[in-house]
């Protein structure tokens, strides 16, 4: 895990089980709007995470060794918006290697897998997969 993810995991661990999921609402709130230069791609349907039932769009750019992440997720889907917001905030400025090393069992490490329930956990896998592949492609 990257240092920032380790920090995030530690922050989640400080919050009691029953309240931990609500931490995602802050991330949902803080997700920056998509920059204008990406709105054409968004309109064309590029960057959509098809595994998500809600319209989730994720973009990665790599400048030298630095990853920049952008996303658009509806406010009516705060859980996935929060999860995407967490990834964007934690991995903005990371290296492509750090993104590639993102643990697949992140929801367990954050301690929110049980609170999400079995069926919601696996939908998140699509977001992670998209993040990793788009960073890998942009780094090429």
């Amino acid at each position: 895990m990257s240092d920032r993810l380790t920090e995030t995991v530690e922050q989640f661990a400080l919050v009691p089980d029953t309240d931990r999921l609500y931490l995602l609402l802050d991330y949902a709130e803080q997700l920056p709007p998509l920059p204008d230069r990406l709105s054409a791609a968004r309109e064309a349907g590029l960057g959509r995470v098809h595994e998500c039932q809600s319209p989730v769009f994720l973009y990665a750019e790599v400048e030298g060794e630095t990853v920049h992440l952008f996303a658009d997720v509806p406010r009516e889907a705060p859980t996935v918006r929060g999860l995407v917001g967490l990834l964007v905030e934690t991995y903005e400025g990371a290296t492509p290697e750090e993104v590639a090393a993102l643990p697949e069992d992140l929801l367990y490490r954050l301690g929110i897998a049980k609170q999400l329930g079995m069926r919601r956990q696996q939908g998140f896998a699509g977001v992670l997969h998209r993040l990793k592949t788009s960073v890998a492609e942009a780094a090429r």
Binding site: L25, Q53, R75, P78, Q115
Partner: peptide
């Protein structure tokens, strides 16, 4: 709701939340 956090972002006054899954 389908989304487990949607209720927390705002809901009808006096309404409670029951999640289908959890």
């Amino acid at each position: 709701n389908e989304d487990v956090l949607l209720y927390a972002t705002g809901h009808l006054h006096n309404a409670v939340h029951i999640d289908w899954q959890t």
